[in-house]
């Protein structure tokens, strides 16, 4: 990541998926701290807490309990403070409507989680590469 001191916010309910992300980030030597929240509501609470560092990027799962990814996006993108933070959807769903809804809510990217871990690492590497080159707000 271009900005290394800001955290990456992972909104993910699955423990193994969280482990996968942490491991992949470690494999590709991303040093940013990773903050994990289990659902949309928790993520919003985290984001709205001024004590917390604002993340440089949000990795968002869609299918979560309590508040799912789409609902989270609908709240966040209506919040002037939060809507500038780039959100990358990281999901299992290849449903067209999920993609359409996500992009309508201004996501920066939509990635499907491959079953193969090595492929997953490549996905994470792409994200890192992109956000290393791309300017961030």
């Amino acid at each position: 990541m271009r900005i290394t001191n800001k955290p990456i916010l992972l909104v993910e309910d699955d423990h193994v998926d969280t482990m996968t992300v942490i491991r992949a980030l470690k494999d590709i030597r991303v040093t940013n701290p990773l903050v994990r929240q289990e659902n949309g509501e928790e993520a919003l609470n985290y984001l709205r807490d001024s004590n917390n560092d604002r993340p440089c990027i949000i990795l968002l799962d869609l299918n979560m309990p309590i508040m799912n990814g789409i609902e989270f996006l609908q709240v966040m993108k209506n919040d002037d403070q939060l809507k500038v933070i780039p959100v990358i959807v990281l999901t299992t769903s290849e449903e067209q409507q999920d993609k359409v809804k996500s992009f309508n809510l201004g996501v920066a990217g939509y990635m499907t989680k491959p079953v193969d871990y090595l492929q997953f690492v490549e996905v994470m590497r792409s994200i890192d590469t992109y956000w290393t080159i791309s300017e961030m707000p």
């Binding site: 193994v16 998926d17 299918n63 299992t92 769903s93 989680k113 193969d116 871990y117 090595l118």
Partner: peptide, 16 residues
């Protein structure tokens, strides 16, 4: 697509 694949992916990752 989601609920069955998630555990599958976990199995795959953990096995790896």
């Amino acid at each position: 697509s989601h609920d069955l694949k998630a555990p599958l992916r976990a199995i795959s990752a953990l096995a790896g």
